[in-house]
Design a protein around this nucleic acid. Structure first.
Lengths: 107, 107
DNA sequence: TCGTAATATTGCAATATTACGATAATATTG
DNA sequence: CAATATTATCGTAATATTGCAATATTACGA
């Protein structure tokens, strides 16, 4: 089918899966890395740095932004992206919580 | 195209993306949770607990096992699964490292 | 060895994802 | 306003993923 049956799982499980999905593509990780290293970043820079087309980079940026991981402002012609640290930290804690709570009960 | 261009990224980035992918499906998270809560687990129990077919559960178990997250032994007719804590902890540290190192350099 | 129970594999249909070229939209500069 | 630069969106092709029924395999007990 190709469609994930989310309704059979808890909200907690679904949220973690959704968060993990954002980080499950190397291009998105690379984008996050690049943005973090430059404090702010222009999409066109990313196109040069990473070897993907502008359209593809823009798509990945949308996924990252939809997850709430970006704060975008305009600076000159280019859109200036910045990582939303609050969301980023929230995701770190969320993912870690899965590991910790799972580990505690394991054999 | 549908095919991820892994060769343009570093091994580190690719490894983290691969790990995140394992955790990016709610069924796999649910399976890990169930196994951890029962110390050991039979696939058929998972089929009852989670609302997916035996074939689908088995497929997800393969993905989890291929990642090195399971230790499987035989107990009676059923296969007894147990989480590989070393790998599990390794993955936790790996994912966390991405967050920590990215965060440190961010604006 | 035969039957049974449990798990794995195969094949398929439906949907999702990835990637890119073309083009549109938006903002800045002249 | 026109030209330019930058980013977003659309359409499309190729591949991946998800899920299940059917079947195969495996292990055990009679």
């Amino acid at each position: 089918m190709g469609v994930t049956k989310r309704f059979i799982h808890s909200d907690y499980i679904n949220e973690i899966a959704q968060v993990a999905k954002v980080f499950s593509h190397p291009a998105r990780l690379a984008i996050l890395k690049h943005i973090s290293e430059q404090e702010s970043c222009i999409c066109n820079d990313l196109v040069d740095e990473i070897g993907l087309s502008q359209a593809t980079i823009s798509q990945h940026l949308t996924v990252i932004a939809d997850a709430g991981l970006l704060k975008g402002t305009f600076k000159g012609k280019a859109k200036c992206y910045c990582i939303n640290l609050e969301t980023f930290e929230h995701f770190r804690v969320l993912l870690n919580s899965f590991f910790v709570t799972t580990k505690l009960k394991c054999c």
